[in-house]
């Protein structure tokens, strides 16, 4: 039996072992020891391979220079086949393993829809409660319409790279509209400036469009500027409703995934015994009966 309140108390006093154990407990669906948690976090999202982890590595260095602490929750996908995962984000954050002011935890999606798990909310709250000043969520490499990060992050940074397509790509709706800051990473490569210009141009018709920064995790260009901008960025008011909505949907996904009957229903649909609509009806009725 895990004593979450006790672990929290020890973690508050700086015990990393207790913090690590508490995060595991929350990841496995344990109830948060904080009744009214709070905690602001920074979500870093963007397509696979644009350099999210390397960029976070550089941000960590800059925060450390400023004497601030950083906790990172880095999410990578689980295999839909084996359930296993290769979590390789922290290897890009070069100085993450040697400072008492940095805490990095790798998390597997465990096939949660949207690529982010419900447990992130209590994890952010616990990290904040334990005094971590900058809390960063790194999402899995994401596509255009993956906006779940809004549920967990107060400020969303969209990272992209050069040569990611023509201007029409930047004109498309989706995550780009949720971004509070856009970073074109790998600015040491050619076409980075062009990519930044395309995105700026695409966003220029909006009343309030996010700033677009160029950065290089290789040379360190733009990192200081990003940190300065993050210090003054405020979460937009309209974001709150979206956040509640995404949180609710995320929580609902968790309820469904944790439902005991899910696997049985999948088998029955597969064997043609019931239809998908019938399965939905059964899940609804089951939820009703378990409430009474």
């Amino acid at each position: 039996m895990v004593d979450a309140a006790n672990l929290l108390e020890e973690a508050r006093q700086g015990n990393r072992r207790s913090l690590a154990k508490l995060l595991t407990y929350l990841e496995e669906g344990g109830k948060s020891p904080l009744e009214y948690g709070r905690g602001k976090s920074l979500g870093i999202t963007g397509p696979p391979g644009v350099g999210k982890s390397s960029l976070i590595g550089k941000l960590i260095d800059e925060w450390l220079n400023l004497g601030e602490t950083v906790a990172v929750l880095a999410v990578d996908p689980s295999s839909p086949i084996s359930g296993g995962a290769l979590l390789g984000d922290r290897m890009r954050m070069v100085n993450a393993d040697s400072s008492d002011s940095v805490f990095v935890r790798s998390l597997a999606t465990r096939n949660h829809p949207g690529g982010l798990m419900n447990c992130l909310t209590p994890m952010i709250e616990v990290l904040s409660e334990c005094g971590w000043e900058n809390i960063v969520i790194e999402t899995v490499g994401s596509g255009q319409s993956e906006t779940r990060v809004v549920a967990f992050a107060d400020i969303v940074v969209l990272v992209d790279g050069p040569d990611r397509g023509d201007i029409i790509q930047a004109e498309k709706s989706g995550i780009i509209e949720m971004a509070d800051l856009i970073v074109i990473n790998k600015s040491d490569l050619k076409n980075a400036q062009k990519a930044a210009d395309s995105i700026r141009s695409a966003l220029s018709f909006n009343e309030e469009s996010p700033k677009v920064f160029l950065s290089s995790a290789h040379t360190g260009e733009g990192i200081k500027e990003i940190i300065n901008e993050l210090k003054i960025l405020q979460s937009p008011l309209i974001r709150n409703r979206m956040r509640v909505r995404e949180r609710l949907i995320s929580a609902w996904d968790s309820v469904l995934l944790e439902s005991e009957s899910l696997e049985i229903l999948i088998s029955e649909i597969e064997d043609g015994k019931i239809s998908i609509s019938e399965a939905i009806e059964m899940i609804r009725n089951h939820n009703k009966t378990s409430k009474s």
Binding site: R16, A20, S79, G84, A85, L86, R90, D97, S98
Partner: peptide, 26 residues
């Protein structure tokens, strides 16, 4: 990973201290 485990790869050239910290934090 294919055996169903969650594997954290540290990358090259870690010190024993760093490795122990990773094992703890993860």
């Amino acid at each position: 990973r294919d055996g169903g485990n969650e594997v954290i790869y540290t990358g090259l050239r870690r010190t024993p201290e760093e490795i122990v910290r990773i094992v703890n934090d993860e």
